[in-house]
Design a binder for these strands. Structure first.
Length: 484
DNA sequence: TTTTGAGTTGTTCGA
DNA sequence: GTCGAACAACTCAAA
């Protein structure tokens, strides 16, 4: 069937889904043919082009998106190269007269996108952007003085508490195709997959696509949301939603997550929310807060928000950093977390704090080293959330933890992994250690170690530092920038 | 302008 | 083992 109406280009970015996708929704509602496009242009992401784990995730998310589009009689066009040049070329090839996308809020991308918008408009195209990634976008949220919030709780109370996102848009029933499809790069041509196959555990861990994301949200709502307040602390359990990689790639939108979890709990509309459900919504709020901060303080992805931390006497110890990265610090809870990250592309939130605190407070390494490592290894890598998390744990961000809040890796392990299941799963050389010693193997009597088949210093490392000494050192280092 | 209350996620010590 | 208080000082947000 010939189709002469000029198509609308829908430029997919961090919104790799058909459901609740405002740009796609509006394009298909317009009655015009739709040209779905993804452009791989890592050089336009500033200092933070996608890391290896995120690229892996993106590959699979794109495969699913293409499949879902094909099921609607459409297609996904893949291209490489600068966005503006590519969009111009596509408009020329297809006669498209409009380009729609959902906004992103990373500083480098904001700059790129506003230039793209300006130039395409100058070309005479209709250009529209939409809110597809946040409950509320940064310009919508401000305190009563008209300034950005720098503390989470007042932001939540002021802008989100008692508020309810509207129902998500459904997927378009069908999507009109343009008269002819322009050329597409094959997915493999984007070279997002690793050259050496390190992704075995990741493949076994994750399902991809928006249906998988909605299933997971549903399961979380049914099994874990009510007990989330407590359950979210125990990394061996399914106590958190694990939706972060889907949110980061946009296979699920935050309001889809909100509604899916709410529906799965079976609560009646307007019913008082159980604490756990409310707290889950608050965690979506933390994601909002992260974007809010990165928007208003755009340097913070690589510089501390609190300027006195520029003078912090960080140690520069490559060996210690490597040991942390590889999960060989000698602190089982830290090592389990780092190996979970390495093997699955994800780490439980509780353990992110423990491992992060260890790098910054015990090893006294600059938080940026942690941020960069997480960026490369997290399938859910998100610039705003990564920045907030590391500045929080580093003590140099907005609403940071008080200086005396130094996580004790042993105490945290015993509290939140009491049976040692999480450690046993990710640090197999300690699998036979009894719970009593699994978080402090160096204190185990020789006989216990022998029975567990552990030779400390050989099968599993001795502790890299002594925590109580390291803690005192960190507090002393902090005092030096306080006085000055 | 000034004041007041409060601030995700912790640890340790002593009763 | 359990509990509450102390751990600093500062900044933010609202009144």
């Amino acid at each position: 069937m010939a189709e002469n109406t000029p198509p609308v280009i829908v430029w997919f970015r961090h919104d790799l889904r058909l459901g609740d996708n405002p740009a796609l929704h509006r394009a298909s509602q317009s009655g015009r043919p739709v040209l779905p496009v993804f452009i791989w242009s890592p050089e336009e992401e500033g200092e933070w082009p996608q890391g290896a784990a995120k690229r892996w995730w993106t590959h699979h998310a794109l495969a699913k998106l293409a499949e879902n589009l094909e099921n609607k009689g459409s297609n996904l066009i893949l291209r490489k190269g600068p966005a503006l040049k590519t969009l111009r070329a596509l408009a020329k090839e297809t006669g498209a007269q409009a380009v729609y996308w959902n906004r992103r809020w990373e500083p480098a991308v904001i700059a790129r996108d506003s230039e793209v918008k300006k130039q395409l408009k100058a070309d005479g195209l209709e250009v529209e952007s939409f809110n597809g990634c946040l409950l509320k976008e940064p310009p919508e949220v401000q305190n009563k003085q008209g300034k950005p919030f720098q503390v989470f709780t007042p932001m939540w109370k002021g802008a989100y508490d008692g508020w309810h996102p509207e129902a998500p848009w459904p997927s378009p029933r069908s999507i009109r195709s343009p008269g002819q499809w322009p050329k597409s790069e094959p997915l493999a041509g984007l070279k997002l997959l690793p050259a050496i196959p390190w992704d075995g555990t990741m493949r076994a861990t994750w399902k991809h696509g928006e249906a998988a994301a909605l299933d997971l949200a549903d399961r979380f709502g049914r099994e874990a949301a009510a007990g989330y307040l407590e359950g979210r602390n125990f990394p061996a359990d399914f106590g958190t939603s694990r939706l972060s990689p889907y949110l980061a790639s946009g296979e699920i939108s935050p309001r889809q997550a909100w509604h899916a979890v709410l529906e799965a709990t079976g609560l009646k509309p307007g019913a008082k929310l159980p604490g756990g459900v409310e707290h889950f919504f608050k965690e979506l709020g933390w994601r909002e807060f992260a974007y809010h901060l990165l928007f208003h303080f755009p340097h913070t992805h690589s510089r501390p928000l609190r300027e006195d931390y520029d003078r912090f006497p960080w140690k520069n110890d490559d060996k210690a950093l490597k040991a942390w990265q590889r999960g060989r610090t000698g602190y089982p809870m830290v090592d389990a977390g780092m190996r979970e990250l390495w093997s699955t592309g994800w780490m439980h939130n509780r353990v992110r704090m423990i491992a992060g605190s260890f790098l910054v407070k015990d090893l006294i390494q600059n938080w940026l080293n942690g941020a960069r490592w997480f960026w490369d290894t997290l399938a859910d890598a998100d610039l705003a959330s990564n920045t907030l998390g590391w500045q929080w744990v580093g003590g140099c961000g907005a609403d940071a933890a008080p200086y005396f809040r130094v996580f004790n890796p042993v105490g945290q392990g015993e509290k939140f992994d009491p049976a040692g299941d999480y450690v046993r799963k990710h640090v197999p050389e300690l699998a036979k250690m009894p719970a009593e010693y699994i978080h402090r193997p160096w204190e185990a009597p020789p006989l216990v170690l022998a029975e567990a088949g552990v030779r400390l210093g050989k099968d599993y490392p001795m502790p890299l530092v002594q925590h109580d000494k390291a803690r005192a050192e960190a507090l002393a280092a902090l005092a030096t920038i306080r006085k000055a």
